[in-house]
Design a protein around this nucleic acid. Sequence first.
DNA 1: CAACAAACTTAGAATAATTCTAAAAAAGGC
DNA 2: GCCTTTTTTAGAATTATTCTAAGTTTGTTG
Lengths: 133, 133
Amino acid sequence: MKVYDHQLEVPGLRMTKQRKEVYRALMENADHPTASQLFDNLKNSQESMSLATVYNCLEALVEHGAIKQVNVDREPTRYCQNSAQHGHFHDQSTGTIHDINFKSGINLIDILDLPEGTEISSLEITLKGTLPS
Amino acid sequence: MKVYDHQLEVPGLRMTKQRKEVYRALMENADHPTASQLFDNLKNSQESMSLATVYNCLEALVEHGAIKQVNVDREPTRYCQNSAQHGHFHDQSTGTIHDINFKSGINLIDILDLPEGTEISSLEITLKGTLPS
DNA sequence: CAACAAACTTAGAATAATTCTAAAAAAGGC
DNA sequence: GCCTTTTTTAGAATTATTCTAAGTTTGTTG
């Protein structure tokens, strides 16, 4: 797992003021926020910026593997601090999202029945249900 | 795996003309169509119906486990004939979706690190990439 | 350093999949 | 056959996201 410094360097990505701020805002919010929640957080900060920019920055960070996107059904897209391979659990009683990891030694690719030569660019695993209280 | 007769009975779901037609239309279209693609298919059939009804019927069928929903990023939701546990592969060079199965003997739940007592109501696994030609 | 091109940001408009609304129709129970 | 509940419908409304076009910043190159 790669965790970049919050001052932030991401290989291959030009780090503008706005991208740094968006990244930092996400690092300070572990609740898998939406783009507009991040936008609201940022309004009260030094560096206010437009919602379109928040979307642009998040897209750039996702494309460069620094953060992850979480889609649950058709709800607004949420963003995840954790760039390592992991899944998400959507707790339907609270609406919250939790990271879930694979048991150690497991490589998800190994258990899928894929044709030889398949190239995988991303893998998303999402559960819904309720966690014990 | 349960495959219902195409005349169709689904336990607990009242089978209206429209729900039967939507189900049948999906069974005849293996390409993981969207709601509006199904709507277009149905226009040329006996039983034409409103787009809202197509959405309603698909929702009812998904809720009752007769079909599955496939979400890839923010693209329009697509629907899947196959109600058994399986994953989806989104081929980025063609835009097509393919079912993928787990290797035999594998139970996905077993490899996830979940707290005791977690209740799972759905599990979605989606890959993106390119398949060999 | 100045000039230029490329990349980025921005506000607001546009898009489009989906959901909502309220009324009409259908289904099932008795 | 009546009554209640569920379903269907057409069109309007919603809303997350993308697009647009103009302005700004950045990095590069002579």
